[in-house]
Design a protein around this nucleic acid. Structure first.
Lengths: 191, 191, 191, 191
DNA sequence: AATGAATGAGCATTCATTCAT
DNA sequence: CATGAATGAATGCTCATTCAT
C-alpha cells in the first residue's frame, strides 16, 4: 500500500527480467508489466533506466553484504573469518540464482566498471570484509604479501566461477565441495 | 583482396568496436564503415549480427589457444605445463586488451552461456590443455581430487580477474607479480 | 484564500512558465508546482490545458485593454487618441516582457487563429479602441479610406514588432524613439 | 529517382503538415507517411527534428528571397525599389499560404529567435534588400533617420499582418489594396 | 559480388488527465 | 474541496536487415 511497495515491485521485476533475459532483453514496458504498474510509473521512482539498473544492483549488494556480515566472527582468526565469508558467498549465491546472474552482468558492463572505480576512490570508511581479511591477514603474517586487488582475485574469483558452473549445470556444489573450494582458495592466499 | 580479406576486415572491425564501445555501442553500419565495406556486405559473410558476434569470439579463441599451445611442454611435469599456460594467459591478455575486453563481454552474456553449454555437451576430442593438465595431474597425484570445472575455476579464475584489474588500473602486473599469481593458483590446486 | 486566489495563482504560474519556456516547456505538473497547488487542482478551475492557455490569454488581454483605456481621451482629436494608445502599448509591453512573450506566442498558434476568427464573427458591441479610432478618423476625414483590418495592421503592427526588437535586444526603445515609432505609424494611416 | 527527390518530398510534407497543424501537430511518422517514405528515412537526410524544421525554413526563405530579388530595380530610386519588394511580398505570400503560415510559426518560436540573432551577428555580406533600401534611403535623404530594425518594422510589419488578415478572411487583398498598403508603409518611413 | 539507401519495428521517456484517499 | 500518485498513449530516434542497382 505504501510507496515502498511499488518501488520494490519494480526493483524485483527489473532484477528478474534482466537476470533472465539480459539487460537488453528487458524493455521498460516489460518491466512495468511484470511489476504490475504503468510504464510511466517507473519514472516516479527511478530517474531513468540507468538509475534503475544501478539501484537494482545496490539492492542486491546491500542484502548480500548484510547476509555475509551476519555472525561475522570478527574476533576469531583470519582463516575462520575467511571461511565464513567464502562459504557464505557460495551459500547465498546458490540460493539466489537470479541475483547472481544479475550481478555478473552488472559487473561486466560499463556500470560495473564505474562502480569499481567509485569503490576504489571513495573509501567510505564502512566496514569492508575484504579489507578486513587482507589487513588482519598481513598483520598476523598468515597471508602472502601481495597487492589488495590480487588478494581479492585469488580469494574470491574461483568461488564466483564455481557458482556460475553450478548454475550452468557443470557441477553440483554441495556442502562438502563448498568446503573444498573455499579451502583451496585459502591455500592460494595463505603463507 | 580475396573473399577472406574482407571477412577478416569485418571481424577485426567488429572486435575493436565492440571491445571499445560494448556490444550495444557498435551498430552494423559502424562496423561496416570501419571495415571499409558496405553495410550489406557483412551479410554475405555472416548470417546475422549474432553469428558475427560468435564468429569474432571464435577467431579470438582460436588464436588465443594456439598461442598458449605454442611450445607447450607436453612431456614435462604438470607443474611446468601449468606455469606455461598460466603465464601465457597473462602475457597474451595483457598485450591484447581489446581481445580481453571482448571475451569478457562475450562470456558474460547470453552468448557466453550458450557457448559454455555447447562445450559441455559437445566433447570434440580436440586437444584441450585444461583437460590435459587435469588428467595428468590426477594421474601423477599432484593435484587435488576435485571435479574438472572446479579445477578450472581454481586454476584460472584469479588470473582473468587479475588481468582485468591490470587493465582497469587497479594493479600493474609485471613479470614478478605474474609469477606470484600463477604460483598462488598452483597452490590452490596442488596436493 | 478563497477559490479565486488559487485560480489566480495558477493563471500567473502558467503565464510565467509558458512565457519563459514556451507552451511546450511548461507541463501541467510544473505549473501546479509553481502555483503551489496539486496537479489535479488545476482541473477544478480549468477544464483542460487548452482552456487554461486561453484563459491566461484573456486575463492578459483584459488587463492590457483596461490599461490602454485608462485616461483614454475620448473627447480629444483622433490623433491624440491614437498617440495615447500607441504609446500606451509600447509602455505596457516594455514593462511586461512576460506578458508580451505570452501573447506573441498565443497569437502565433492555432489558439490565436481561433481567437481572431471568433472576434471577427462575434461582434460583442463592447467598446473597442480600434474601431473607435477608425470610425472617428473616417468621420473627421483624418485617416485614409481603408478597410478596418488594414487600418489596424498599419497602425499597430510596427509597434508590436518594435517591442519585440526591444526585448530581443536589437534596439532600445526610449521615450524619444517611442514617439518616433508612433508618429510614423500615424503617418501611414493619416490622410 | 535521385537523392534530392526524397529529400524534397520530406521537406514538402513537413512544410505542409506543420503549416496546417502547427509544429506540434506533425509527428515524424506523419511526415514520413505524407512524404511516402519510411520513418527512419527522414534521418538519412536530416540529423533530427530540429534540423528538419530549420531546413524547411531555409528552403522557403531562399525561394522567397530569390523571388523578391528577381527583376529588383537596383538602379532606380529607393521608392521604386521599396514598392517592388513590398508588392512582391504580398504577391508571393498570398499565392503561398502554407509557406506563409510556416514562416509565421517559425519566426515566433525559439528557432526564429535563433535565426534572427544569427542574421544580426553574422553579416554574411550577401545582398540584403532590407539593408540596401535602408542605406540608400538614408544616403539620398528620402527616409527618416531611425535605427535599422525600426525601419524594418515600419516598412514590413503591416504587410505581413495584412497578408495574415487576407488568409484569415478578414479582408481580400487585391492589386489595388496591395498598392494602398505598400504606399502607406512608404508613408511611414519616408521623410 | 558489393553496395548503401530504405525500411519499420522497437524502445526510452514525457505528460495530460484521472481518481482514490 | 484538494491532492499527487498512477496511468498509458504518444513521440523522436535507432538500427538490424533487405534489396534494387
Amino acid at each position: 500500500m505504501c510507496k515502498t511497495d511499488k518501488r520494490d515491485d519494480i526493483l524485483s521485476a527489473a532484477m528478474e527480467l534482466m537476470a533472465e533475459q539480459g539487460f537488453h532483453g528487458a524493455p521498460m514496458a516489460m518491466i512495468a508489466d511484470k511489476a504490475g504498474v504503468g510504464a510511466g510509473t517507473i519514472y516516479r521512482y527511478f530517474e531513468n533506466r540507468d538509475v534503475l539498473i544501478r539501484d537494482v544492483y545496490h539492492m542486491i549488494y546491500d542484502e548480500f553484504v548484510s547476509f555475509l556480515l551476519n555472525r561475522y566472527p570478527t574476533d576469531r582468526p583470519v582463516r575462520e573469518c575467511f571461511f565464513h565469508i567464502g562459504k557464505g558467498i557460495i551459500d547465498y549465491l546458490i540460493r539466489n540464482p537470479l541475483k547472481f546472474r544479475y550481478t555478473e552482468q552488472f559487473h561486466n558492463s560499463p556500470y560495473g566498471l564505474e562502480f569499481r572505480k567509485l569503490k576504489l576512490s571513495n573509501d567510505t570508511g564502512e566496514f569492508d570484509f575484504g579489507r578486513d581479511l587482507y589487513y588482519k591477514g598481513l598483520k598476523h603474517q598468515v597471508i602472502k604479501e601481495i597487492p589488495l586487488p590480487i588478494f581479492f582475485d585469488l580469494a574470491f574469483a574461483p568461488i564466483f566461477w564455481a557458482v556460475r558452473d553450478h548454475h550452468t549445470g557443470f557441477v553440483v556444489i554441495d556442502d562438502a565441495l563448498a568446503e573444498v573450494i573455499v579451502s583451496s582458495c585459502w591455500d592460494s592466499i595463505r603463507i
